[in-house]
């Protein structure tokens, strides 16, 4: 099973490298959102640790949706989904591989978006290692839910509107934990940052297991 998941993830990343429109769209999107949100609320408010963290994670949640939808669009355009699903264990591998490859892509998107936020807003970082842990676990906690919702909305009309409606309410606990954890790391609250990071890890594990259990039934 792990071999098949790794195989699908490697295939995804290869496709992303050859045709990086998903990564480019997600990075551009997060950059535009970070700039726009900071302009809208004003630099003084945007520099607040809570506000900066919230804006960053909201932007990353939307970027995750965008990257996931692009990834599945590529499958549909190439008629590759049917072949993949027909393979033994293909459905589990599809879910696991997509989650894994999206997490890798999101690390890149989060790194660029995060650096932009830190530089543009001139944010002081009290605990850089804690911040790294929170961001990495937050990035791992987002894809399972988004992949589930994109699979559910596959081939439906109004899919672009439906996926955020389905995904964002379910992502609220992850977004709250990631925002609070990031804010704690920025302001020097080590225990707070690690507690929220632990919660993010728990959400990542729970939703990955739930996804691996029930998503294969939803892939047709």
């Amino acid at each position: 099973m792990i071999d098949r998941i790794a195989l699908v993830a490697a295939r995804e990343l290869r496709a992303e490298r050859r045709q990086p429109d998903g990564v480019v769209a997600a990075v551009t999107f997060i950059a535009v959102l970070v700039l726009l949100e900071s302009l809208v609320v004003g630099p003084q408010i945007a520099r607040d640790a809570d506000v900066a963290s919230a804006l960053f994670w909201l932007a990353l949640a939307f970027a995750t949706i965008l990257a996931t939808m692009r990834s599945f669009d590529r499958e549909l355009e190439d008629d590759a989904l049917e072949g993949l699903v027909a393979l033994p264990g293909g459905r589990d591998a599809l879910f696991g591989g997509k989650v894994l490859s999206l997490a890798v892509v999101l690390v890149l998107v989060a790194a660029i978006g995060g650096l932009l936020s830190l530089v543009l807003l001139d944010l002081p970082v009290a605990l850089p290692l804690h911040l790294l842990v929170v961001v990495l676990l937050g990035v791992v906690a987002l894809p399972p839910i988004v992949v589930v919702d994109v699979v559910l909305a596959l081939r439906l009309r109004a899919r672009a509107a439906l996926v955020p409606i389905l995904a964002l309410p379910v992502l609220v606990p992850q977004l709250v934990a990631a925002t609070r954890g990031t804010s704690a790391a920025l302001t020097g609250d080590a225990l707070g940052a690690l507690s929220w990071a632990g919660l993010l890890f728990a959400f990542a594990v729970v939703y990955t297991v739930v996804g691996l259990t029930i998503v294969p039934a939803a892939i047709e």
């Binding site: 839910i145 589930v148 559910l152 739930v210 029930i214 998503v215 039934a217 939803a218």
Partner: peptide, 9 residues
Amino acid sequence: TRAAVFGIV
């Protein structure tokens, strides 16, 4: 099926 999966999540 789609609704059932979302109902569980």
